[in-house]
């Protein structure tokens, strides 16, 4: 499938999973008696993470902004998700350059995946970007360092579940080992 169409379809799928399923999860038994922060996992940064290696930085920034502002519209957050997304979109190329052994131009036509990165580098890549996204987003949302323990707890809880969700998505909807199907789907 055309790489543009593929990414647009993936964008829509990820966005719908985020707003229709993940945003509805708020565990009452977990947060009610203990005062543990109510959090939701954020799957949608995966859209930026899985863009092809050779995507120009400017295009990644625009895609990140559009993805973030769409999520913002669903959640009435007025640009906070867009900010965090543009931030990680800007640093994506640096993180990839640091992690990948070869020059990025040698991965023509490929997207970051377990297949061409290996499990550990892929996990490091996902974790780094997610943590950066969450720190930016939750700091902006809370907008005070008065209760920094709460902020860190929320970043940690949401970040761990986000990474789990992203791994689940990668295992379900892409072909991590490249077995049988060389072209990974969404």
């Amino acid at each position: 499938m055309n790489v543009l169409v593929k990414n647009i379809v993936r964008f829509v799928i990820i966005l719908l999973i985020q707003v229709l399923i993940l945003n509805k999860i708020s565990l009452q038994w977990w947060s009610q008696p203990t005062g543990f922060p109510v959090f939701v996992p954020y799957l949608y940064p995966l859209f930026i993470l899985l863009l092809p290696f050779e995507t120009p930085v400017a295009l990644v920034l625009v895609a990140g902004f559009l993805c973030g502002i769409s999520v913002d519209a669903f959640m009435n957050t007025a640009g906070m998700h867009a900010f965090a997304m543009v931030l990680i979109a800007y640093f994506r190329i640096n993180v990839l350059n640091a992690i990948m052994p070869k020059n990025l131009t040698e991965y023509a036509g490929q997207s970051p995946s377990v297949k061409n990165m290996g499990w550990l580098p892929f996990l490091v890549y996902v974790a780094f970007m997610i943590v950066m996204h969450h720190i930016a987003f939750f700091t902006l949302e809370l907008w005070s360092l008065g209760n920094i323990g709460y902020l860190l707890l929320k970043i940690l809880a949401s970040g761990l579940t986000s990474i789990l969700m992203i791994l689940a998505y990668v295992l379900l909807f892409t072909n991590p080992t490249g077995y049988k199907r060389s072209q990974s789907s969404y």
Partner: peptide
């Protein structure tokens, strides 16, 4: 509806 954000709508 949401309850997880700082400003919920």
């Amino acid at each position: 509806k949401s309850v997880n954000a700082v400003n919920n709508y």
